[in-house]
Each structure stands twice: as structure tokens, then as C-alpha cells.
């Protein structure tokens, strides 16, 4: 006989070792709370990124303190600084080496639009070679802006149809 469960929380004595939820919720919960950044520090924005990683601003509060200098171990490339045409192919190659799922934050005016460098040597926005998820304004942005971008990134990840994407060909491997 089925009885009405009046308890608001999970009770293992009644329900056993089973949790019922949506796959998307679980996957996105795991992904969004441990974004390992790939710090692509190219200019002064890299210094502010280091500030965000330090004790005062403490990016660890959002689960992104594990800065990985290997693309194989990171989830989110933070392009922090001026993207020159000479550097652009290397950035793309590093991005290609990151395992899916992966995200990109364009940090600062230069990475977003070329910034004040309207010149022959500077790519006018890293979104010409990478699919950027979040743009941060500022020159350079303050660490709070990086944390804000990270929170927006988490919100975006939590809206993704991750379970469906698992079975799509382009997301395998």
C-alpha cells in the first residue's frame, strides 16, 4: 500500500538507496561547481586573473580555484588579454586540446573586441576563432567582474541539455 510521504527531505529508511532526479540536473550540478579554468594570460588581464585566484577574492568559493596549465585537464579557457594574430593559432590549438565539454570566457576589452588596439597586429576579438560563452568588460576588469562572469557561466551551464548532448556525435570523444 502506498502511503503519503510527509517528510520534506530524503529519508533513506523509507526510500532506500535511491535518489530520483533529472540527469541534466545532476550532470550540470557536477559540471558547474567544479569549472577548472585554463588561464590564457596574454596581457595585464592575466594579473587581475591572478588576483581573482588569490585569497582576497578567492575564486575557490565558486569551485574554480584549480587553475590548470594543461589544456587536457581544464574545462574553461579564460582568454585574459590582447590576442595578436601571431598568438591566435596557438590559442585555437590549445582550445582544441581541451576535452569536451568546454567553455570560453573572453576577459577584458582586448579579448572581446580588440580593445584599444585597432592595428594590423591585433585580432579584433577572440570570438573570431573561439566560441565565446561569456564576455567581461573592463580594461582590465576587476576580480569581482571575473567572479561575476564565473557565476553567469555556472548559470549558463545549469541550463544546458547535458544528457541529450552526451549522445550526440559531436560531443563524443
Amino acid at each position: 500500500m502506498v502511503t503519503a510521504n510527509k517528510e520534506a527531505t530524503y529519508n533513506s529508511a523509507i526510500e532506500g538507496d535511491i535518489v530520483v532526479t533529472r540527469l541534466d540536473a545532476v550532470i550540470n550540478w557536477i559540471r558547474s561547481n567544479s569549472i577548472w579554468p585554463m588561464p590564457m594570460g596574454l596581457a595585464c588581464c592575466g594579473i587581475e586573473l591572478m588576483g581573482a585566484g588569490g585569497a582576497r577574492f578567492d575564486i575557490a568559493r565558486f569551485g574554480a580555484e584549480v587553475m590548470r596549465f594543461s589544456p587536457r585537464q581544464s574545462d574553461c579557457m579564460i582568454v585574459a588579454g590582447t590576442v595578436t594574430y601571431k598568438m591566435a593559432p596557438h590559442i585555437r590549438r590549445i582550445y582544441d586540446q581541451m576535452a569536451s565539454p568546454k567553455w570560453v570566457i573572453a576577459m577584458g576589452a582586448c579579448a572581446s573586441t580588440g580593445g584599444m588596439y585597432r592595428s594590423y597586429s591585433t585580432m579584433q576579438g577572440v570570438d573570431r576563432i573561439l566560441p565565446v560563452d561569456v564576455y567581461i568588460s573592463g580594461c582590465p576588469p576587476r576580480p569581482e567582474a571575473i567572479l561575476d562572469a564565473l557565476i553567469k557561466m555556472q548559470e549558463k551551464i545549469r541550463r544546458e541539455p547535458s544528457a541529450r548532448m552526451l549522445f550526440k556525435e559531436e560531443y563524443k570523444g
Binding site: 591566435a88 593559432p89 590549438r93 580588440g114 588596439y117 591585433t122 579584433q124 573570431r128 576563432i129
Partner: peptide
């Protein structure tokens, strides 16, 4: 500078 990346991304040097 890299033709492979150019083929992949369709990005080119453009006048700013």
C-alpha cells in the same frame, strides 16, 4: 599564420 587553424575557423587577418 597557421593554415590549419584558418581552415578550421575561417578566420583571417582583416583590416582593423
Amino acid at each position: 599564420p597557421d593554415p590549419e587553424v584558418e581552415a578550421e575557423t575561417k578566420a583571417r587577418l582583416v583590416a582593423a
